[in-house]
Amino acid sequence: MSREHEITLTVNGAAHRVRVPGRRLLSDCLRHDLGLTGTHVGCEHGVCGCCTVLLDGRPVRSCLMLAATADGHEITTVEGLAGPDGMSPVQRAFADCHALQCGFCTPGFLCTVTALLEENPEPTDEEVLEGISGNLCRCTGYQNIVKAVRRAAELKAEES
């Protein structure tokens, strides 16, 4: 049994003090210790991207990170993407473009795309493909996800 650590995670703006064994994955901590089950786990070896969250604004795979390593960091999960006025442009674009079917990979895509458009508000088609090329989706065939990224960029531009 590994040693326990007392850590503080700021998740979606709220600080959480949690006691975790050293081996606790960040994904498991978010899902099972904090009850934020919107972050999904699809492979536990960092390939599928379902578990992507934003760590200090940058996308990371929460299944490849120990919760203890995230101590003191700011984390945004899918539950934190919507604002007081409702869903974010990225979330709305996914709905508009039918960019999800079963919805299991969707939180990872939403976090990835949110970070992508923060860094690059007007990505080229090539950059969009590259930007989402670390996330697997088994349902949509990606075409509508690509469309949604472009749509989200438009919405963000219109609303800024």
Partner: peptide, 22 residues
């Protein structure tokens, strides 16, 4: 018609098997 399941699934409110039974 836009999907009626999407707002839930887009905001982390989906309830998949491992999300149950805390």
């Amino acid at each position: 018609v836009r999907r009626r399941e999407d707002p839930r699934l887009l905001t982390g409110q989906g309830r998949y098997l491992d999300d149950l039974g805390s």
